[in-house]
């Protein structure tokens, strides 16, 4: 149920007409994606641009969606449709550190459930939630292609492999 989302931190999205503003360099970068596609098929650039917005703002927020709709001459629902289709776009505000634990077969066999349970107990949240202080978000994801070193997780853009509970403690403690 939706109420399982314990903290206010992740819950409230206020939908407004506010349009995000980006620095000139970022807008330049976005324009550099546009030139890869024919001018009448601007919307093809939506996915690369969603990644730019996510990088700049941390997640795909309301203002970012409004910006993209305007930038690519789309309706907001078109942006929403694409953004919800892909799991790597965050439609909620996420914590400073995004912990993505691989839950696919190899990792699962090699002890992913214990790792997940350990992390969730340690941070006192369920998978899919963010800690109250906004530091960590834990999600379970499909295969990250590192089966040889299972179980593994990805924090931010870094892989952490051959996990054990001790190793996890060490990693989490080292993060600020």
């Amino acid at each position: 149920m939706a109420s399982a989302l314990a903290t206010d931190f992740t819950n409230k999205i206020v939908y407004t007409d506010e349009v995000a503003e980006f620095s000139p360099e970022v807008v330049e970068e976005m324009k550099s994606h546009l030139v890869k596609y024919p001018p009448e098929r601007k919307r093809s650039a939506l996915i690369p641009l969603l990644f730019v917005v996510q990088r700049e703002r941390g997640w795909i927020d309301n203002a970012g969606v409004n910006f993209l709709a305007k930038f690519l001459e789309l309706e907001v629902t078109d942006v929403w449709e694409t953004a919800t289709f892909y799991s790597m776009f965050n439609l909620r505000k996420i914590g400073r550190h995004h912990i993505q634990i691989c839950k696919t077969l190899s990792c699962k066999i090699m002890g992913e459930p214990e790792i997940t349970e350990h992390i969730c107990n340690k941070l006192n949240i369920h998978p899919g939630e963010t800690t109250a202080d906004g530091k960590f978000t834990v999600t379970l994801v499909e295969c990250l292609g590192s089966c040889g070193t299972a179980p593994m997780m990805q924090i931010g853009f870094d892989y952490h492999e051959d996990l054990t509970t001790e190793k996890v403690d060490q990693i989490l403690d080292s993060l600020k």
């Binding site: 989302l5 992740t10 919800t84 998978p127």
Partner: peptide, 19 residues
């Protein structure tokens, strides 16, 4: 008092995994 935002957009992060 439903969680209006959660009703409108159920994104992937929200999906609970059953063990």
């Amino acid at each position: 008092t439903a969680d209006a935002a959660a009703v409108g957009v159920t994104d992937r992060i929200n999906l609970k995994v059953e063990y």
